[in-house]
Lab assay of single mutants.
Amino acid sequence: MSGNGNAAATAEENSPKMRVIRVGTRKSQLARIQTDSVVATLKASYPGLQFEIIAMSTTGDKILDTALSKIGEKSLFTKELEHALEKNEVDLVVHSLKDLPTVLPPGFTIGAICKRENPHDAVVFHPKFVGKTLETLPEKSVVGTSSLRRAAQLQRKFPHLEFRSIRGNLNTRLRKLDEQQEFSAIILATAGLQRMGWHNRVGQILHPEECMYAVGQGALGVEVRAKDQDILDLVGVLHDPETLLRCIAERAFLRHLEGGCSVPVAVHTAMKDGQLYLTGGVWSLDGSDSIQETMQATIHVPAQHEDGPEDDPQLVGITARNIPRGPQLAAQNLGISLANLLLSKGAKNILDVARQLNDAH
Rank of each mutant, 00 (worst) to 15 (best):
V222P: 00
A297V: 08
L341E: 11
A219P: 01
L342H: 15
L341S: 05
P241M: 15
T133P: 06
S45G: 07
C261P: 01
T25I: 05
A266K: 07
Q314F: 13
S147L: 00
E86Y: 15
Q155P: 10
S184R: 12
S96M: 05
P105V: 05
V237Q: 04
W198I: 07
D36K: 14
G168V: 03
D359M: 02
G308T: 08
G260V: 15
R32I: 14
Q180W: 06
L342P: 02
M295R: 13
L134Y: 01
K348D: 13
I205R: 07
T41G: 08
L81W: 09
I71G: 09
C261E: 03
P127F: 11
V94C: 14
H207C: 11
S337K: 05
L42F: 09
I350Q: 05
K27T: 09
A339G: 15
D228L: 03
R32H: 07
Q304W: 06
G274N: 00
D178C: 13
L245P: 01
V103M: 12
E86M: 09
F77T: 02
K62P: 03
F77N: 02
V124P: 03
H120F: 15
L154K: 05
Q304S: 13
V267M: 15
R167F: 05
N349A: 15
P127T: 11
L177D: 03
E73Q: 10
P105E: 06
L68C: 09
D65Q: 08
Q29G: 14
Q304L: 05
A122K: 04
V316H: 04
H95M: 06
M271K: 10
G308Q: 15
G192S: 10
I21M: 13
K98Y: 01
A151D: 12
Q304E: 13
I166T: 06
P106Q: 11
G346Y: 00
D230C: 03
L343M: 15
T294H: 15
V39E: 08
G192C: 11
V123S: 08
T41Q: 09
D311V: 12
P105K: 11
A67R: 14
E258A: 03
Q34V: 06
S141F: 08
V235H: 00
A226C: 13
A303F: 15
L161T: 08
D99E: 06
S262E: 15
L174E: 04
T78H: 05
A266Q: 04
H268G: 01
K62D: 15
H305M: 07
L137Q: 05
G260A: 04
E135I: 11
E209N: 02
H83L: 14
I53V: 11
L234V: 14
I323F: 10
R150M: 05
F77M: 01
L188D: 02
Q314D: 00
R149I: 05
T25A: 11
Q356N: 15
L278R: 04
D61E: 14
H239A: 11
I299T: 14
E306G: 06
G131S: 11
E293H: 13
K43W: 09
R150E: 02
E89R: 13
G280K: 08
S146V: 08
Q194D: 10
V222I: 15
L278W: 04
D352L: 12
K128H: 11
I336T: 02
A320E: 11
T243F: 00
A40P: 04
G216Y: 05
G274R: 04
P264E: 05
G280R: 05
M196R: 06
N200V: 06
N88G: 09
F163R: 09
H126M: 07
E179F: 07
